[in-house]
């Protein structure tokens, strides 16, 4: 079993970084195995002042990340620089504050944007996959990891003979937007990549959700998710490989969601 090895490995060693170990617990070397806040030490049974204030700083940074503006133009340029076509879409959410309080608006296209996509669909033809990118709840996630993930995904699927639409850039979107976009286009699959809600230790996690046969009647049970895409989590290129694997399996079996394990 690996567990006891893990326990023994960390147990008796010296603190991982003695300088920062003051007041931490004697098992601080276990912290090398996880980003979780372990071996924090205590004052009585409570958090020490330093740990408490570190938490406050992390919370403050996460709060700032939620409200940070999204530079869609820069992301579009980055995608184009990787050889990808990009087309903008707009959801019904008018601004960030409304977006946070009204998820329904982020799940659908703004009527004009939907109309333009409908008009465009025949010239694009039916293709295997529509990829949508959004800031979601973390502009930093989309800005930092979306271009690399999408470019690698396009490369891998291209090798497998998949046909892809231009990458759709849709600020202020929720996951379900992939259904409307996929349905208008008649796409075989849709994938949406969007910023996950910022946590204390990571404010730039990207999530990817894929659906076979996207349409209005699809629910979360019909989706598969690859989450925590970021340097310190699942790196973009590995994430792309994982998404591609699931897509290929999903097409082979003709389903997505809880019926499909993300092997």
């Amino acid at each position: 079993m690996e567990a006891p090895d893990a326990l023994a490995a960390g147990g008796a060693g010296p603190p991982a970084s003695p300088g920062s170990g003051a007041g931490r617990d004697p098992w601080i070397s276990l912290a090398a195995h996880t980003t979780a806040r372990i071996a924090l030490g205590r004052a009585g049974g409570s958090l020490r002042t330093q740990s408490l204030l570190e938490l406050r700083i992390a919370h403050a940074r996460a709060r700032d990340a939620v409200h940070a503006p999204f530079d869609a133009d820069a992301l579009a340029a980055s995608l184009r620089a990787r050889g990808l076509e990009v087309e903008p879409l707009a959801t019904a959410a008018p601004d960030r504050k409304t977006y946070l309080a009204r998820p329904d608006l982020g799940r659908g296209l703004e009527p004009g944007s939907a109309e333009r996509l409908r008009a465009r669909a025949p010239s694009l033809g039916r293709r295997d996959l529509a990829v949508i990118v959004s800031d979601g709840l973390s502009a930093a996630a989309a800005g930092s990891h979306a271009a690399e993930t999408v470019a690698e995904l396009a490369r891998l699927l291209g090798e497998s003979g998949w046909s892809l639409y231009p990458v759709f850039l849709a600020p202020l979107a929720r996951v379900k937007l992939q259904d409307e976009v996929g349905e208008i286009l008649g796409a075989g699959h849709s994938v949406i990549l969007l910023g996950e809600r910022p946590g204390l230790s990571a404010q730039d996690s990207l999530g990817a959700y894929l659906t076979f046969g996207p349409g209005a009647d699809r629910t979360d049970a019909d989706r598969n998710c690859v989450s925590n895409i970021r340097g310190g989590g699942l790196p973009p290129r590995e994430a792309a490989a994982k998404i591609a694997r699931i897509l290929v399996e999903s097409r082979r079996r003709g389903l997505s969601g809880t019926g499909l394990r993300d092997g």
Binding site: E2, A3, D5, A6, L7, A9, G10, L30, A31, H33, T34, T35, A36, I38, A202, N228, G232, G233, L234
Partner: peptide, 12 residues
């Protein structure tokens, strides 16, 4: 743990 690392989970 973000990627289900067994040792990371055991540490927590």
């Amino acid at each position: 743990h973000p990627v289900d690392d067994l040792r990371g989970i055991a540490a927590s």
